[in-house]
Computed example of a mutant assay.
Amino acid sequence: MRQPAGRSARRSGGERKPREERWAELIEVATQVFYEKGYDGASLQDIADRLGMLKGSLYYYIQSKEDLLFDVISSVHKDGLAVIRARAGVEGPPLFRLRSVIVGHVEHTCRNLVPTAVFLHELSALPLERRVEVLGSEHAYQGVFRDLIESAQQAGDVRSDLDPRLAALSVLGSTNWVYRWFRPGGSFTPEQIGAELAELTIRGIATEQGLGTV
């Protein structure tokens, strides 16, 4: 069973670890409480009450509220990163794969609004060293976009005057903002939003040659 990210070195190897189902429930409930009340406004008592357990029982799983936020944030980041890495690994030219990554990122965001909101709102509540631990020193999530843009640029498919890092930040900034205005059951589906944002992005950075690859 996966050892939760914030629990390293807390218990000896011989002690019983929490059941995976209970840990998953804790993460889900904590995510919802942080979403509703914000990290500063939420308490471990709130989370324990929602789970129907004593507050003291939470300390079997975590050492502090900060540890729990770290585990929530890590879980959100890990899930999203798995989605875009899978999309980046499809066959095809880098610009084609970038389109796939953008669509996947947007669709994942639309279908995970609460975890996304907690990640984007509360990441800054963690100390810097713990934020780096989540994101990776090279910002792994951003790096998927940057590497594809850089590869497409080297192939002559993206304009040479663009900085890949700035372009990646621009793409992430615009696509991340979807969580603020998307409404399930509204006028636009996640698929429509992903496709249109990908189209706008690709047409904004691609050369004529690059447009022929997507």
Rank of each mutant, 00 (worst) to 15 (best):
Q3F: 06
G104H: 06
Q45A: 13
V214K: 01
G92L: 13
R87T: 05
G89S: 15
S43N: 00
S100W: 00
L69S: 02
G13A: 09
G13Q: 09
T109D: 03
Q209T: 14
A82M: 14
L81N: 03
G186E: 07
P94F: 04
G104Q: 05
R10P: 00
E129P: 11
L197F: 07
D67V: 00
V33E: 01
Y59L: 07
P127E: 15
R165V: 10
I62K: 07
V144C: 14
L95R: 06
L166Y: 04
V144W: 12
V83D: 12
A42D: 01
L54I: 00
G14L: 09
G136D: 12
L169H: 06
R203H: 14
L95Q: 01
G56N: 15
L200I: 13
I102Q: 03
T189Q: 03
L26D: 02
G210Q: 06
P94Y: 06
R10G: 07
E199H: 11
G204C: 13
L135K: 15
G6R: 03
S170I: 13
E20W: 09
V114T: 15
I84F: 08
P184F: 00
T109M: 07
A5E: 10
V90D: 11
V158L: 11
A48V: 12
L169Q: 01
L51R: 10
L197H: 12
S12A: 10
L44S: 02
V83W: 14
S57T: 10
A125V: 00
D161V: 10
P164K: 10
L68R: 02
G186H: 12
L120T: 11
V90Q: 12
Q142R: 14
H108I: 08
G14I: 13
L113G: 02
K65N: 12
G41D: 01
G212V: 07
S137C: 12
S8G: 05
H139G: 09
S174D: 11
Q142S: 13
D40F: 09
L162M: 04
I193K: 05
G56T: 14
A82R: 15
A5S: 10
G185A: 09
E91N: 12
A206N: 01
A198P: 02
G173P: 06
Y141I: 03
